[in-house]
Amino acid sequence: MSRRRSTATDATLRYLPVLVAATAFALPLAWVVVTSLKKQSEFGSSLLPAAPQLANYQLALSLLDFMKFATNSLVLSSSYALIVVMVSALVGYGFARHRAPGRGRLFMLVLATLMVPNLVLFVPQFVIFAKLGLTNTYWPWILWALGGSPFAIFLFRQFFATFPRELDDAAEVDGAGPLRIFFQIYLPSAAPALAASAIFMFLWVWGDYLYPILLLNGDNTTLAVKMSSAYVDPRGNPLQTVTMAGVVLYVLPLIAFFAAANRFIVRGIVTTGLKG
């Protein structure tokens, strides 16, 4: 019946909902851009800027050493994401595809750690890292990454659990061990989940601001921390317009990153050719 429908109606049905949704999502973001172009005196008084103030962007880059702290954030976030995704995929694979006594309970333990409010662990975590001499370094994040993330482990476990059982059976008949099966079959087919969780894990560090305040000092801290206090005029008054320019600059590299990862997700599906 869809073949009989005119292409115009069909296109409307395909595009209308997505366009409406995209507009609704984009409005607050567009407002960030508009606000970032206002004079500080226009903020809260006039709806649109009389003339776009590109100087706000210069200020956003110069009021703090933007590139330096962006590099800090990038190094910390990507090292964490890289390691934690590989570890979590392996652990998730173990939980999804291998049976052993105690597995159910251990998995509940994984989930339980996800449910513990971070706040309650703040002081104990600081105490441990301070005793190890690791405050003011990036090591806490690397150690966390090496232990995997409960969130990503859960994600991979759910993802690998959808794979058909025949996959393991066929591979085992060929004499492949669990790790070879993981690296040769599961990991390549997990490209979408790998990309998705890498982004999650990257953002967890990129956007976090409580742990860097707790564990890092002024110089090696992240952009999120610096940005939250740097955009003030010489009198210490907040500059909302410059802050919004900072937000735009903060998000731009992520847009590029996501566009690239998006292509990767699609290609991952096409090239594996394993599904179904």
Partner: peptide, 10 residues
């Protein structure tokens, strides 16, 4: 996806 990548403070 964009709103998700904006840190919560921003």
């Amino acid at each position: 996806y964009l709103p998700y990548v904006i840190p919560v403070v921003a």
